[in-house]
Amino acid sequence: KCPLCELMFPPNYDQSKFEEHVESHW
């Protein structure tokens, strides 16, 4: 789950994509 927007991600979600998403909040 994204700590900034509460959006849920699947357990096998690509880590780099997840980090990209988190950085999109900044």
Rank of each mutant, 00 (worst) to 15 (best):
K1I: 05
K1Q: 05
K1S: 11
K1G: 09
K1D: 07
K1E: 05
K1R: 07
K1F: 08
K1N: 13
C2L: 03
C2Y: 04
C2I: 01
C2R: 01
C2N: 08
C2K: 00
C2T: 04
P3Q: 13
P3V: 09
P3N: 08
P3S: 13
P3K: 08
P3Y: 05
L4W: 11
L4E: 15
L4M: 13
L4Q: 14
L4R: 14
L4F: 13
L4N: 15
L4G: 14
L4I: 13
L4H: 15
C5V: 00
C5H: 03
C5S: 03
C5K: 02
C5R: 01
C5Y: 01
C5W: 01
C5L: 02
C5A: 03
E6R: 06
E6F: 07
E6S: 07
E6W: 06
E6I: 01
E6L: 05
E6A: 11
E6C: 14
E6Q: 09
E6D: 04
E6T: 05
E6N: 01
L7H: 13
L7A: 11
L7G: 08
L7E: 10
L7K: 06
L7Q: 15
L7R: 14
L7S: 15
L7V: 14
L7P: 03
L7T: 14
L7C: 06
M8Y: 07
M8K: 10
M8P: 06
M8G: 14
M8N: 13
M8A: 14
M8S: 09
M8F: 09
F9C: 04
F9A: 04
F9Q: 02
F9P: 02
F9V: 11
F9T: 09
F9H: 10
F9D: 12
P10E: 09
P10V: 02
P10F: 05
P10D: 09
P10G: 04
P10Y: 02
P10I: 09
P10S: 07
P10L: 03
P10Q: 09
P11H: 06
P11T: 14
P11K: 03
P11I: 10
P11D: 13
P11E: 10
P11V: 05
P11W: 00
P11M: 06
P11Y: 07
P11A: 12
P11F: 04
N12S: 08
N12P: 09
N12I: 06
N12C: 02
N12F: 04
N12Q: 08
Y13W: 04
Y13E: 08
Y13G: 12
Y13T: 14
Y13N: 12
Y13K: 15
Y13I: 15
Y13V: 10
Y13R: 05
Y13C: 10
D14R: 03
D14N: 13
D14A: 08
D14C: 05
D14Q: 09
D14S: 12
D14I: 08
D14G: 05
D14P: 05
Q15F: 10
Q15G: 11
Q15V: 10
Q15W: 03
Q15N: 13
Q15A: 13
Q15L: 12
Q15M: 14
Q15Y: 03
Q15P: 11
Q15S: 08
Q15I: 13
S16H: 12
S16P: 12
S16M: 07
S16F: 13
S16W: 02
S16C: 11
S16A: 06
S16K: 14
S16T: 10
S16E: 05
K17A: 12
K17D: 07
K17T: 13
K17S: 09
K17I: 13
K17Y: 12
K17Q: 11
K17C: 02
K17W: 06
K17V: 05
K17M: 08
K17P: 01
F18L: 08
F18V: 09
F18G: 04
F18C: 10
F18R: 13
F18K: 10
F18Y: 08
F18N: 09
F18A: 07
F18T: 10
F18W: 02
E19F: 07
E19D: 14
E19S: 13
E19Y: 04
E19L: 07
E19N: 14
E19K: 11
E19P: 03
E19R: 11
E20F: 04
E20T: 10
E20K: 11
E20I: 01
E20G: 08
E20S: 07
E20A: 11
E20N: 14
E20H: 11
E20Q: 13
E20M: 11
H21D: 00
H21G: 00
H21A: 00
H21R: 00
H21W: 00
H21M: 00
H21V: 01
H21N: 01
V22G: 05
V22R: 11
V22M: 12
V22H: 02
V22C: 11
V22K: 15
V22Q: 01
V22L: 05
V22P: 02
V22F: 04
E23S: 06
E23F: 04
E23M: 03
E23I: 04
E23L: 05
E23G: 05
E23Y: 03
E23T: 11
E23D: 13
S24M: 07
S24Q: 06
S24F: 10
S24P: 03
S24V: 06
S24Y: 06
S24W: 06
S24T: 07
S24E: 10
S24L: 10
S24I: 06
H25W: 00
H25I: 01
H25G: 01
H25C: 10
H25F: 00
W26L: 12
W26N: 15
W26T: 15
W26M: 08
W26G: 15
W26D: 15
W26K: 15
W26Y: 08
W26R: 15
W26Q: 15
W26I: 12
